[in-house]
Design a protein around this nucleic acid. Structure first.
Lengths: 250, 250
DNA sequence: GGGAAACGTTCCACCCAGCGATACGCTCTT
DNA sequence: AAGAGCGTATCGCTGGGTGGAACGTTTCCC
């Protein structure tokens, strides 16, 4: 058994982490399945978590609580970043009226720190706090292009799962694109992560020209013209970069 | 000793909850002070929390981690609400170009679920995920006006702490205002929670006319004219109300 | 309607994870 | 050099945690 699961804390975290993606409510039985813990144990620990207001009960099972939501928003780096970035994302949305994302790299994935879009935003698998792979999204490709050669090699080597008919699964092709991204300063995505979705992204560079942060604008095939938004997105990215310059977030 | 603190889980939660308001980094010693737990214990549990990626270390102490941020954003009710509400808040911001808040009532406080504002937003004590009392904010007064009589009595009875020279500390005065709020459908705040800050708020009513949710627009004394924004805010609130109608969030 | 399957809670005797006073090492300040 | 403050490591005791088993309830299906 995972030694992390021998402690109460480990079990509690395992239960909380069982909530992934779109799950809202998880039954006790489902938690048992996902954690692999004994039923009695999950029942007890989950009840404790409810007592500590990290979980809520409802007739159908357990949910992550509002208390956890509040706690998460106090996370220092993310909070600061969010407060500094929002005005720029705001401006960008206003100029484009398309869905705007702010993403940071964590390992070989993007984590979306913020997503803003209006009533007519395209259906997209991304969500605030969600994750996507690097190789098939505009933000991901920007971040991958600027990442350490080590990581690039690993991702190019690892399996490139086909997510749509347009996903780039040929390492050579992807590598060539990453080169272009570095030259052009922006990355494009054409229905590579989700059907019908186009996207442009630009890096938020630090003073040494490195980054693990990027901004994107995306919209549906048809109405959306990626190249139209290149200037707006560059402006937002450099604006935020200047704001962050010199400020130690970590 | 608080019996909650006898369990590891209780101690862990106490440590996490020690991060309040503006604290970004807390030293071990500070955590010891806030939790009242023995130093050795805090050291051990905090190290466990780091191992489980709920805390980060840095030279100055501990911080709430990005993992916690992600976890919090999966909280079901808040996430759904946020996704449904964002487009309306977005529109409202675009019409007013002033700071927009979305708040829910929790007990005798408002919790801000979202806050959006541009580059020139007025300095305000509120922040996403933060809390404020009900009696001295526009959103708070809206929610208090629509709350159970029981709660109204309690807040009117309890001490009304003076936060600025304009804070309403006379229960009678406040009660009269609450009556007007119900009639007018909006609440105003004139520097009652922070100096130099004005605010208008409207309730997001459910089909029975009850609510624990409200939207506000705020700005600085001088430029900001609260009454100008009444229509825009009403539109946003009723728009969101329609969107929520029939949909079970809880 | 009855039998089975799935779910969730409670019980309880074992035992090891957790406990925290104490000691230690380090860095500042006086 | 002495003191104050911070953070980590030690270690023997003990009760919080454990999880198999048993029990009630609901759901499903023949």
């Amino acid at each position: 058994m995972d030694p992390q699961l021998k402690t109460v804390l480990g079990k509690a975290v395992a239960i909380l982490r069982s909530f992934t993606g779109d799950d809202r409510v998880l039954s006790l039985a489902e938690l048992v399945r996902r954690t692999g813990l004994p039923k009695a144990t999950v029942s007890r620990v989950a009840a404790d978590l409810v007592a500590h207001r990290l979980l809520d009960r409802d007739p159908y099972g357990y949910r992550l609580s509002g208390g956890l939501f509040e706690l998460g928003l106090r996370a220092s780096v993310e909070r600061t970043l969010l407060e500094l970035a929002m005005p720029f994302l705001q401006d960008l949305y206003e100029r484009t009226h398309e869905t705007v994302h702010l993403g940071v790299r964590d390992g070989d994935e993007v984590v979306y720190i913020a997503k803003i879009g209006g009533h007519r935003q395209a259906a997209s698998p991304s969500r605030t706090g969600g994750r996507m792979p690097l190789y098939c999204t505009a933000i991901g490709k920007v971040l991958l292009a600027h990442a350490a050669p080590e990581l690039r090699r690993q991702v190019l080597g690892g399996p490139l799962e086909r997510r749509t008919p347009h996903t780039i699964v040929a390492p050579g092709m992807l590598e060539r694109q990453l080169g272009n991204v570095l030259e052009a300063g922006v990355a494009f995505e054409h229905e590579e992560s989700a059907p019908g979705l186009l996207c442009v992204a630009a890096p938020v560079l630090d003073t040494e020209g490195r980054t693990d942060l990027a901004i994107s604008v995306s919209g549906p095939v048809g109405r959306f013209r990626p190249d139209v938004h290149v200037n707006a997105i560059r402006a937002a990215a450099t604006g935020l970069a200047n704001q962050l310059a010199g400020r130690r977030l970590r």
